[in-house]
Amino acid sequence: MRWGMVINLSKCTRCHACVAACRIEHFLPLHITWPRLIAWETSKEQGVEVTTYPVRCNHCQNAPCVEVCPTQATQKRADGIVWVDQDKCAGCRYCVIACPYQNRTFLSRDKNPGYFPGYPPTRFEKMGKKLYPHQEGTTEKCNFCMERIDRGLAMGLKPGIDRDATPACVNTCQARALTFGDLDDPESAVSRLIKQHKGFQLHPEFGTDPSVFYIDPGLANAPSNVAPEGSTTGCHIQHLSTMEARAKAIFQAGRGEEK
């Protein structure tokens, strides 16, 4: 068994819901984000557009972070999940340096000033300290919501299919751009997507064998992420696309009035 994720780049609507869901699930400190949405400008004939890549820990099979960790705080489970035992981490940051995907963060005091610095902690923060304490001076990263997976499996549920056993980011993705499942099972949804759409990993030349795959079926004429005419992906993409066009029109109209 090897848990993995497939990210459909064409479906991602860059809404940041996965980032928010993870924050809520793990009570992340203010300046920590486990999944990230990296974005860059692409020039189109009609103007500037934004292209995005949702990234997170790749849970590599040959994880450099596991290899370099001197305290064995970073470990790989039998199911492929790479996680950090914060009670063992000495805070040397070698894993942060060694991760070629730059998906680890050292939790220093300045990254955890409280959601409203200078004010008492919110109820959310107070609850987080009880339910999911984060240790300053240690390293953090995405753990594929392994608590949800373990709890779900104990209840007889199937990760990737049953919501209570599936990572929070996958559950929350309104565009269904994220798919989770067992990469070792050729009949799983992730395996089929990878096979069908020629899934690829980031930087395969490093020999890390990530468990996060990307597919780009060209559904939305990627990399613009704008749904094409006749897309059956979902009305929300068309909606966002329309919103973007409207926002641009309003912005340009505003600039015209300024002149």
């Binding site: 290899e67 001197p70 064995q72 705080a73 063992k88 805070g91 940051r93």
Partner: peptide, 18 residues
């Protein structure tokens, strides 16, 4: 430099690869 200096002794446990 260490984030958790009191745990430095743990750092001797992984010479196989680190």
């Amino acid at each position: 430099f260490l984030g958790k200096p009191a745990r430095f002794w743990r750092m001797v446990f992984h010479p196989q690869t680190s």
